[in-house]
Design a protein around this nucleic acid. Structure first.
Lengths: 129, 129
DNA sequence: TATTGACTTAGAGTAAACTTTAAGGTTTAC
DNA sequence: GTAAACCTTAAAGTTTACTCTAAGTCAATA
């Protein structure tokens, strides 16, 4: 069992964000101590891991919420969930390919400017002589 | 020479966004017809290409604006621009590596659910018999 | 027992990057 | 020559994902 503070440390999400996610339905209601404090289970941490994974690959909180709701509805929704993940996976791959291309352009520009800088500094050095 | 509409079509940016970028200083003031209409040059298109490249690799408009301003200041700022691009390149590579790891997790989850779906449908088929 | 940190709800505030609206002027195709 | 299409600026509005504040109560630790 983990306090909200523990979970914040482990996930890198602020306590505000953790409560916000729960309120928005990204995370099932977390169990409480008799006094009403949140007690996160290993399962909750696992769920948060998947949420972060989806979020960090560009899925919107809205879509993640949809996925989580489907999960809660049980095996009836397996097909839909598989479909959702498959589409997400494709879009991530596509985005990574795009990124790769953009990265090549950045690298090209960087080399171009590096070369220009070298020439410029050579020139300055010669002028100072 | 290209109208704002042409450029919108070529870049995928809306005419609103093109004007917004110019107003915000991401793009140097575009030349005009006698009537005041924007006339984009090939150079402008080139500049927009770099802007989109940086934006699509996660650079904020603020940072892009900084980069563009440095470019306008000439060779004095070459070192700074090289530094900026180098740092950006590193951050893109790091993000891509992270994405790769997250993608593996998504793939794993997808396979897990696919298998579960297969088992579930088998079960249903057997029940229907 | 005092202090620190947790809890609640509700709602306001923030930042980025657009996106739309308002009110009007310019071009061009028929 | 006129209507449709396209242009202008300035400013307000939208969306996403938080982030913070308020105001009051409860729990745990030194």
């Amino acid at each position: 069992m983990y306090s909200i503070q523990d979970v914040s440390g482990r996930t890198g999400l602020s306590t505000h964000t953790l409560r916000y996610y729960e309120k928005e339905g990204l995370l099932s209601p977390v169990s409480r101590t008799p006094g009403g404090f949140r007690q996160y289970t290993d399962e909750d941490l696992e769920a948060l891991g998947l949420i972060c994974c989806l979020k960090n690959t560009g899925m919107s909180l809205q879509e993640i919420t949809r996925f989580v709701r489907l999960t809660r509805q049980g095996d009836e929704t397996l097909r839909e969930r598989v479909e959702l993940l498959r589409e997400h996976r494709e879009s991530v791959i596509q985005r990574m390919n795009e990124m790769q291309k953009y990265l090549e352009k950045v690298t090209w520009k960087l080399n171009f400017f590096s070369e220009k800088l070298r020439a410029y500094e050579d020139l300055k050095a010669r002028q100072e002589q």
